[in-house]
Structure formats: C-alpha cells, structure tokens
C-alpha cells in the first residue's frame, strides 16, 4: 500500500518499500534534489531535513517511520530564522563548493529555533554532525552569530 508522505506542506502518495531511506524518496521520487546525498551512513549531515521540526538525517530514516510526520526540506524551509540564516550566509559568502550547505542551513535554522542566541559551544554541539569538506566552519559559525544578532535586534 502506498505511503502518504507530507513534504513541504504537500501530501504525496509514495509507492516504495517502507524501508526505503527518506533521502531516496525525496531525491529520486519527488525530485527534491536540494537535500544532498553525502555519505548515506549518517556521518556527514548533508541529507538533513526537518521532521516535525527536528533536524534529522534523511539517509537514515525509513519511509515507513515518517509516513505520519511533517517533513520540511531546504526547498521550503522558511520563517524568521531561515531568512536571517539565508541573509547571513549570503553576506558572509559561506559556501565554497556548496555540497554540504543545505544540510548546514537546515541544522543552523533548527539551532536558532531552539537557542536564539547560541554561544560558540552551542554552535559546536548543534553543528558537529554537519561535515564540510571545504572547511567553511569559521564562516558558518560567524554567519550563525550574525543571524542570531539580527533576530535579537528584531526582538528587542
């Protein structure tokens, strides 16, 4: 029986094996290729999506386990934190090759939603599962602080 999967607010009928990793469904079936396949073994974070608001590695998540969840990918993530992160990413010119960046952005947005003014330690903890082959870590950290600053000034 097909699974009905809610991705970016749209419900799709997915006729795949229940053990298919969500990443495969997103990329191959739904053609949402913004979410990247980096390692396939939950080591790099390139495949990070939000599942009911929590950042998760879609390469390590069975289709059948998320059939009743709300999934948001890089194509549709939005809100104040997302806007602040996107602006800071552009201003800092964070990406180099860009491959890891959709995962980095998804983790960074989730971090700012959980901790609006993160310390360096908070950034290290939240982002340590997102690997960047180009080592853009310093720019990522700076951009997260920039985004937090913008969000903070909007609140005060």
């Amino acid at each position: 029986m097909p699974y009905s999967l809610s991705v970016n607010g749209q419900v799709h009928s997915i006729d795949e094996d229940g053990q298919t990793p969500l990443l495969w469904v997103l990329r191959d079936t739904l053609k949402l290729t913004g979410t990247k396949y980096g390692c396939g073994v939950a080591q790099c974070g390139a495949c990070t999506v939000h599942v009911d608001g929590q950042p998760m590695r879609s390469c390590s998540l069975a289709l059948e386990a998320v059939a009743s969840a709300q999934i948001v990918t890089i194509e549709a993530v939005e809100g104040a934190e997302t806007k602040a992160i996107q602006d800071a990413w552009i201003a800092r010119d964070v990406p180099q090759c860009g491959f890891c960046q959709s995962g980095q952005v998804m983790s960074a947005v989730a971090l700012l939603r959980a901790i609006p003014a993160p310390t360096d330690d908070d950034v290290d903890i939240a982002m340590s599962g997102n690997i960047c082959r180009c080592a853009t870590y310093n720019r990522i950290r700076a951009a997260i602080h920039d985004a937090a600053g913008v969000l903070g000034s909007g609140r005060s």
């Binding site: 396939g40 939950a42 590695r57 998540l61 069975a62 989730a110 901790i115 599962g129």
Partner: peptide, 16 residues
C-alpha cells in the same frame, strides 16, 4: 540540538 534520534530510531536501519 543534537539528539541521538537525529540518526538513531526505533530499529536497526540496514540501509545506513
């Protein structure tokens, strides 16, 4: 901000 459940779920997941 980095729960075990980011990767670990209710069962062993063979594909990953």
């Amino acid at each position: 901000t980095l729960r075990c459940s980011t990767c670990h779920h209710d069962e062993n997941f063979e594909p990953s």
